[in-house]
Design a protein around this nucleic acid. Structure first.
Lengths: 257, 257
DNA sequence: AGAATAGTGTCTATCAGACACTATGCA
DNA sequence: TGCATAGTGTCTGATAGACACTATTCT
């Protein structure tokens, strides 16, 4: 009950007691051991007709040889009690920075969303690390650049199916599975699929993403109706031009943020 | 790119370099400032035909006089580099402990779920605190005990409507709003409502909870069909006995975990 | 021409919502 | 007996799924 305080006392006395208590609380909290806080990123894309996740091969212990999600520590300011300046970077900003550093992608062009925190003790055997996990959805035309810009031996997109069969470091299997559940669960309620197709896309391209993530074939005709519904509700808008995905030039659409 | 390592080198040399790097990484992470990590709890219940949230009146700065969500720091072990023992308590366990301490409730009898982490710098002016927020759904028959067991002047259930009009400390307004969005968004997909009625409940009692959270009246007949559907899908089961909610004794149901 | 995909139309089973009717128990 | 709530039945409009048909463009 750290933040609960005792009952009423006269005003002056109380004001002083409160200040004392505040400093005491801050001091004591500062004296207690603190965890390191990191962000881990589940960076997803659809490439080669498969949902893929960016993994990094670990060279050093712990988990040498295992694959891991990219991630890094949140930058924290000196944070002395009463020091108001520079508490460090936002956790969201840390995730964006990590995304930029790992993939070279512009975070503004990627759907990045917090998943949840993972804080089991022992998840990193070296020390207490609490991780705030995020997932990113990358358009295929951007995902291509990632592989080019990165040493493929150490960081590369891997089909999710394969990734789940590999030995993953830390609790990264749990994080990956949680992210997949979130994306699959929100497929028909959140604009996740439109973040995984080119910025201007045909109905077929969008349908393929739904099928790949959802894992089941969808009726072409009925799916077209769904897209029409999204246009009527203002989620999507028709874009200029046509696109040749298959044998015939198809209408193209764009997500209306 | 904290966790990415350089390219291949001969085995022995690499093994040594890896150990060095591991210690270096651990040492450096230990040397960097760390944030305090807390949990904040959005404890919700339905009382007096209203959705209510447990708030605590702050006596001391910062935000003296403002209302706050209950919460507290996550206990972390000494966590020296290489020290494998005692990394401290699980973040989930910290939330359960906090719930127990603040309300006296048995965490096993309450729906407790992680919301997400809130990590904006400056959210606590005293020092860098990253908070992992949880929400709890408490049955009315248990929520009654809370008010009895707690000094009502400092911690009490407040109608959500009122709570949002009050001055809330830290970023607790944002946390509360996020929790409400989660509960409302999952009302028809997750068993949130059944966590907010007595363990054995009538159709009417359940319908009232849906109406109170959703904010709109539901057709009695159609809602009964919904309950029947939940029984058929094995979500609910009929329980022994009857219950007098209104003028006539009603059938009662129970959640099938 | 034939193949492959784009786009539209249609039928149907299912479901949600609106509403009405009967049953039960209390004042 | 009147009234409030429990429980059931029925009608209808909307929707999702299955499937068929036409249009376009490439080989």
């Amino acid at each position: 009950m750290v933040r609960r305080e005792p009952a009423e006392v006269p005003d002056e006395q109380r004001a002083r007691a409160e200040l004392d208590a505040a400093y005491l609380a801050a001091y004591r909290a500062d004296a207690y051991p603190r965890p390191a806080v990191a962000t881990d990123l589940v960076i997803l894309t659809v490439l080669d007709e498969e949902l893929q996740v960016l993994l990094i091969r670990r060279g050093i212990p712990p988990f040498p040889g295992a694959w891991a999600l990219p991630g890094g520590f949140v930058r924290v300011g000196p944070s002395a009690p009463g020091d108001l300046a520079d508490q460090g970077e936002d956790v969201d900003a840390a995730a964006r920075r990590e995304l930029q550093e790992e993939t070279g992608l512009d975070p503004a062009r990627v759907h990045l969303e917090q998943l949840q925190a993972f804080g089991r003790p022992g998840r990193d055997p070296r020390m207490r690390v609490i991780s705030v996990a995020y997932f990113a959805l990358v358009r295929p035309e951007l995902a291509g650049h990632v592989q080019a810009g990165t040493d493929a031996a150490w960081a590369s997109f891997v089909p999710v199916r394969e990734a789940l069969q590999r030995e993953l470091a830390f609790d990264h299997r749990e994080i990956l599975e949680t992210a997949l559940a979130r994306v699959r669960g929100g497929l028909f309620r959140r604009p996740y699929a439109v973040a995984l197709v080119p910025e201007v896309f045909s109905v077929s391209e969008l349908r393929r993403v739904y099928e790949i993530i959802g894992g089941e074939a969808l009726d072409r005709g009925n799916f077209t109706r769904r897209v029409q519904g999204m246009v009527e509700r203002g989620v999507l808008e028709e874009a200029e031009g046509r696109k040749v995905t298959g044998a015939r030039r198809a209408r193209v659409y764009r997500f209306r943020g």
